[in-house]
Design a protein around this nucleic acid. Structure first.
Lengths: 232, 232
DNA sequence: CGCCCTATTGAATATAATCAACCGCCGTGG
DNA sequence: CCACGGCGGTTGATTATATTCAATAGGGCG
């Protein structure tokens, strides 16, 4: 599986407010896992085992299985996103989490009292808020898919990624795509060829530059307008 | 607003396990609301006020607002679904809930200790499971939208509705669509004209019958195959 | 160097949007 | 009672858009 466990270090984690305090965290969030590129953190159907994961570095794609062996990318996730929030009360994972690059996750045992927040109401609310936020996130994702034209969905994805990097302290203008063209195609619901053509189209219009997986946004406003569908 | 409040009756509610017991429920779930067809239970941007709702009768559509006045149907909901589960930790509602027919909802105050389940772990887990289930639901919805062809999405929607009615004790073969063609079009991401053509196409192939809003499934298996894309 | 895998490009075809006209049900008001 | 008007729904013709199939390019790696 390419998975490798070691002790956690919670000092720089932004989610410590969900636990009891930085001191106790390393007992709660017992260990971390390394997941190598293209390996799965978990797969469809596997028992979730009351664990959730927090991405500390790297990125993942969430893949659902269609009847008839076809796969579908339903989300991308990067640090500090959580994985497995949707598993409580489910018999098995409804999606697989596949690492897009060598990644590290923090494992949190759902059953530990400390995380479930018996002591402080804030912790309990924090967990509820986390779950509610994940619902909004998923609903927001449907909004992307509801764009009529593929160029709108593509522009929307690029802007979403840009914002994700930005809110994690990286450049919003320049970043490296961790996913393949094929993954992008699956996620935005077009053929892989179409992704190529869309990128080329954006490049010719001076909206962005993309060499292999290195992306530079040149005209975010134009992308915004494209996503909104006010111009072609 | 067309909203009208009265006392709740929890005796036949299937969600009492989330509360402390049937006896106490009517104090917890203080009151019900009637919402008339085309009226909103809540609107985008309104403060959620730490309430969630449980549909007791009728049905709703969830509508998101796009930049530039366009609206987008992102989900349909019917009894005994919950509404507003995605609001905890959010400043305002991210979607509007519009009644598709005259409906009744049960109002549950999120702040009440009883519902948050200080006493019994089962209650707390019940709430977590509820939220986690809503995440899965939203992710499932993205799966529908990921179908390449509109006929797949249409068939998928029909089957989903059928299953929803079935699991609530109604016929899976024969039911009344509470939503307009326009709502369907928005939800599955096609033009309203296309919905008409798809219905006609399904009818000519003997898969279903639809007179105004009364739907009869004639060949669910064929619909299944159409949704899966194995045949046209 | 040569292979494999990802990505790109081209040409023909399938699919759905758009624009426009029309239908029919339903409630309103004469 | 019937005529009217409006709205939701359907149908037709044209155009825009994306898929499919096929061929090609080019990097990473043994």
């Amino acid at each position: 599986m390419g998975i490798d466990s070691y002790r956690s270090n919670c000092e720089r984690c932004i989610h410590t407010h969900l636990c009891e305090g930085t001191a106790a965290n390393e007992q709660i969030a017992g260990h971390r896992l390394r997941v190598r590129r293209h390996d799965s953190l978990y797969r469809v159907g596997e028992s979730p085992g009351n664990r959730i994961y927090c991405i500390r570095s790297g990125s993942f794609k969430l893949v659902m299985q269609r009847p008839g062996d076809a796969e579908q990318v339903i989300a991308f996730a990067m640090a500090p996103d959580f994985l497995g929030l949707n598993t409580l009360g489910a018999a098995g994972h409804t999606a697989s989490a596949v690492a897009l690059e060598d990644s590290e996750v923090c494992v949190i045992d759902w059953d530990r009292q400390a995380f479930r927040g018996r002591r402080q109401p804030m912790q309990r609310n924090g967990l509820h808020a986390l779950l509610a936020g994940e619902i909004r996130r998923a609903q927001q994702a449907t909004l992307l898919l509801h764009h009529t034209h593929s160029r709108q969905r593509m522009a929307d994805l690029v802007l979403n990624l840009s914002q994700a990097y930005h809110s994690n302290g990286y450049s919003a203008r320049r970043f490296r795509l961790p996913m393949s063209r094929c993954d992008i195609a699956s996620y935005i619901g077009v053929s892989a060829e179409c992704v190529s053509r869309l990128i080329d189209q954006f490049r010719r219009k001076g909206m962005l530059q993309l060499h292999r997986r290195d992306l530079t946004l040149l005209d975010p406003d134009a992308l915004q307008r494209t996503a909104a569908g006010v111009e072609n």
